[in-house]
Design a protein around this nucleic acid. Structure first.
Lengths: 267, 267
DNA sequence: TGATGTTATTCTCATTATGAGTTCTTCTCA
DNA sequence: TGAGAAGAACTCATAATGAGAATAACATCA
C-alpha cells in the first residue's frame, strides 16, 4: 500500500470501469439436523451454467452506489433470510472462507465469500424469493470426499466449486464442535444431554460413550446450565425422564471435547 | 443460484460495466520472529488515503482478461515475493479471512482477502517492487487490542482496517500453534527444542516450563524428528550442547499443546 | 398387570496427560 | 577453577479420559 508499488498505484488511480471486473458473491452453507441426519440447505438451478444441479444459496454483495451498501455478513443474512425467514437471531453465522479460482464460474471472474450457518431444526425451506426449488438435503447423499470432490455416482452434483465449499464447511463444523459450545446451536432450548449427544454423533458420524459424554458436558464450565426441569415423559422407547438444560455462557470449551480416534488424521 | 432468484438472474445477465463495481485485493499478514520478538511485515504509505501510515502489503487480484488470471493464493504469493523474494517454498501461507465492510477504503468498495504467512527469520525486506518503505515491525509496538483496534498512543497507526486484520492474524497464529506443528515454520532446520520453545513463548507471550515442554514435544508423534546431531557448542551463556531436530510428518498435534491459563478466555 | 427392554444418570477403575519441581550433567564465562 | 546457565531426564501429585458396570425410571407389549 505504497506509491512505489505498481499495484497500489493502480489502486490509487483505479477507475473500475476501465479494468477487468471481478464479481463478489456470498454463498451460505447452512447445516441443520433433521431425522437424525446432518442436512444442508441447497437450491436447484434451472438455467445454465449447471442447469438442473444443486447449489448453495448465494447472491451478489450489494456494493453501494445504486443499491444500499451491506457488509459481507449482512449479505449472508439476507441470503439466508430468503430461504428460511425465521428466527435468524438464533442462528449461528460465521465466515468460512473465500473461493476465487479463475474459471470457477464460467461466465466471469467471481470471488465468493462463503459463510457457515448452524441452525436448529427448521421447517422445509420456503422456495421463496431465493429459489425455484430449495430443500434440506442429507449431507451424506452428496458423496463428499475430504478433498472437496464428489464421489462418482452421487445423484446430486453440486454446481461450481460448491462441493469443496461444503466439504470445508462440514470439516469446520466438526472441528468447532470440539472446542466451542456450538453444538447447542443445533438444538432448541431447553434441551437434554442426549439431544446434545445426538448432535455430536450426527456431525462426527460416530457413536459416543453416553456416560462419558454426560460427565464431560456437565464438567465443562459454562457449557450448559440446568433449568431445574425435566422432560414430561421418558423417551419413546423407555428410560427415565431427562433433565433439561439451556446454553451456558462459555464461548470456548475447556477442556475441549475431542473427537475419538484422531490419531489416524494426524499425518 | 436459481432463475427465480433475482440475484441469480442478475448474475446470469450481468454486464459488470453497468453496475457498481467492487474491487478485490489480497493483503498478507507475514509473521516472523526476530530478536526474540514477534514481528510483522509492513509497508509505509505516502499517498492518501492514510498517507504516512503503515499498512499490510497488498495488491489487486489479477482478474484475467487483459492480465493473466491468478488464484487468490497466487496473488498472495506474488505480493509476498515483492517484499521478501526468497525461499517462498518454506513459508507457510493460509487464508485468514475476508474483510469487506463498506467504507473500509474511502475510495471505493473494496473486498480484501487476507492471507497469513509464517516465516523463519528473513533479512530486512527489500523495499523492492512493493514498497517505498518496508520493515519488520515488532507486533507489540502496534498496541493491538483483542478487539482489533489500536490503543491510543500507538506510534504507528495502521491504515484501513489493517489493525483488525493483523489482530485476527495474531490470534490465528496463537491458536494454530496449539494443535498444528506450525511453530516449526518459524525456525530453520535443523533446530533445537529450545528454539521451538522460544517460538511458543514469543507468540503466546508467556514463559513455558522448559522440562514439560521438552517432554511434550518429544512425546507428540510426528512433531519433530531427531537428526542425530547436536549443536557445535553450548548456548551463549553456558549449558550443554542441544540435540538437533527437523520437522516431523504430523499435520496435527495429538494431543495438542495447549496455552496455559486459558480458563479466563472461556467466557 | 407384570415381564422385558430402553435409557438417563452416576460410579468405578485403569490409563494417560499435565503442572510443578528436582537431579544430573555439560557447557560458557569470569 | 568456580559459578551460573541450560539441556535432558526424573519424580510425583493431580486432572482428564476411555471402558465398563450399576441403578433406577420409564415405555411397550404380552
Amino acid at each position: 500500500m505504497t506509491p512505489a508499488d505498481p499495484d497500489q498505484d493502480f489502486l490509487a488511480r483505479y477507475d473500475p470501469r476501465e479494468y477487468d471486473p471481478i464479481a463478489v458473491t456470498v454463498d451460505v452453507v447452512t447445516l441443520t439436523i433433521r431425522d437424525g441426519g446432518l442436512h444442508v440447505l441447497l437450491v436447484r438451478r434451472d438455467e445454465p451454467p449447471f442447469s438442473g444441479q444443486w447449489a448453495l444459496p448465494g447472491g451478489f454483495v450489494r456494493a453501494g452506489g445504486t443499491q444500499p451498501a451491506e457488509t459481507l455478513r449482512e449479505a449472508a443474512i439476507r441470503i439466508l433470510a430468503g430461504e428460511t425467514s425465521e428466527r435468524l437471531g438464533e442462528i449461528h453465522l460465521e465466515q468460512l472462507g473465500s473461493y476465487g479460482d479463475p474459471g470457477r464460474d464460467p461466465r466471469m471472474r467471481v470471488i465468493s465469500v462463503a459463510y457457515l450457518a448452524f441452525a436448529p431444526e427448521l421447517p422445509e425451506p420456503l422456495a421463496g424469493p431465493g429459489a425455484a426449488a430449495a430443500a434440506w438435503v442429507p449431507a451424506d447423499v452428496l458423496g463428499l470426499t475430504e478433498a472437496g470432490a464428489q464421489r462418482p455416482g452421487s445423484t446430486r452434483k453440486l454446481a461450481f466449486d460448491h462441493a469443496r465449499i461444503l466439504a470445508d464447511g462440514l470439516e469446520r463444523a466438526r472441528s468447532k464442535l470440539e472446542y466451542t459450545p456450538l453444538a447447542t446451536s443445533f438444538v432448541t432450548e431447553p434441551f437434554t444431554i442426549a439431544e446434545l449427544r445426538q448432535v455430536y454423533e450426527t456431525v462426527w458420524a460416530e457413536p459416543l460413550h453416553a456416560g462419558n459424554f454426560h460427565r464431560k458436558v456437565l464438567s465443562v464450565p459454562g457449557f450448559v446450565e440446568s433449568t431445574g426441569e425435566t422432560t414430561q415423559s421418558g423417551g419413546p422407547r423407555g428410560g427415565p425422564r431427562s433433565r433439561l438444560y439451556r446454553r451456558g455462557d462459555a464461548r470456548l470449551l475447556h477442556p475441549a471435547l475431542l473427537r475419538p480416534g484422531r490419531e489416524e488424521a494426524v499425518r
